[in-house]
Amino acid sequence: MVELDWNNVPKDMCPVCKTDKYLSPEIQFKINPECYHKICDACVDRIFSLGPSPCPYPNCGKILRKNKFKTQVFDDLEVEKECDIRRRVLNIYNKKEADFPLTDDYNSYQEEIEDIVYKLLHKIDVEKTEEQLKEYSIANKQSIRMNNARSDQEYEKFIRLQKLEKQYKSQRNRLNRQIIHEQANLKNLEKMKTIDELQQPSEEKNSEAVIKSVKESMKNRSNKYKKQLVELENKYLKQREIIIKNQQINSKKKKEVKIPFTPFNGDRMIPMPYRLEPNRYKDPYMEKMVDDVQFMAGGYKLDLYYERSLNEAFTGLNCYIEEEKAN
């Protein structure tokens, strides 16, 4: 038996159990982003089901977990690696162009991302770069979460659009099929009519009238379907517009509110039975007391106290309890 060259595993063979694609065509290969060593699905199940274990490749020794195994997407492992790294970095560096006031800022942000990806991929300053990544993710925790939520929303929007389109297409196809069906019926009828004419020339008039009316109704029906088709398309376009504009599907057109906006709800100036004239009332005792840094820094306002006192003094004037009770 030939020793297996672990550094150059054959393309269609699992190096652990030596299963070959030729003999068992259902074999599937998995890789783990820790070391990107290829192992077949069955071996992954067997080795890693009981918890994390070291990679079976000699001289690797990386501890792998089953839930991190995935199917290889790209043939070239370098591409696969870069995609994984990029995905991870972009999950943290997830700002969009619109988040930057200047294009230059955005460009340098992109540059930074590329730098990090390049360094991680080619194992240059890995520790330092990881540190940088970590620092950034801590410093921007809030905005990262927000941006992720935003992209989730966009994804959701995309899914909704897709669903709408699918629905629209299936409805359109149904109507189209019905139209074709009606047209086929119409043709059949015409054929029947010719046969009828040939068979019973005497009752020509009568049968023609019958057929004409049937034909008429068929035409009407197919016209109706065509109309429905147009309506459907309009409805679809409208709903699509709404989703794109990020509104609820059912929300109706906003009516322009006619009432002007009143910040105080029309309740700002109650004519008070008194008026505090600026600089007319002086209380030297209090003014001296308030002229203190403690009062100033705390935001205390003597005028407000005067106002409150006046309010207290005058509240109840012009108030007739008996009358109010009667109401």
């Binding site: 308030v290 820094a297 705390g298 935001g299 205390y300 106290y305």
Partner: peptide
């Protein structure tokens, strides 16, 4: 209140407490 009244600065649930209260001011508005 009048200026010779001392308000307690230990008011408002903590998360919503204004800086002058955090600094223990007794005369606020």
């Amino acid at each position: 209140g009048s200026p010779n009244e001392k308000f307690t600065s230990n008011v408002v649930t903590r998360w919503y407490r204004a800086p002058e209260l955090l600094f223990g001011s007794h005369h606020y508005s």
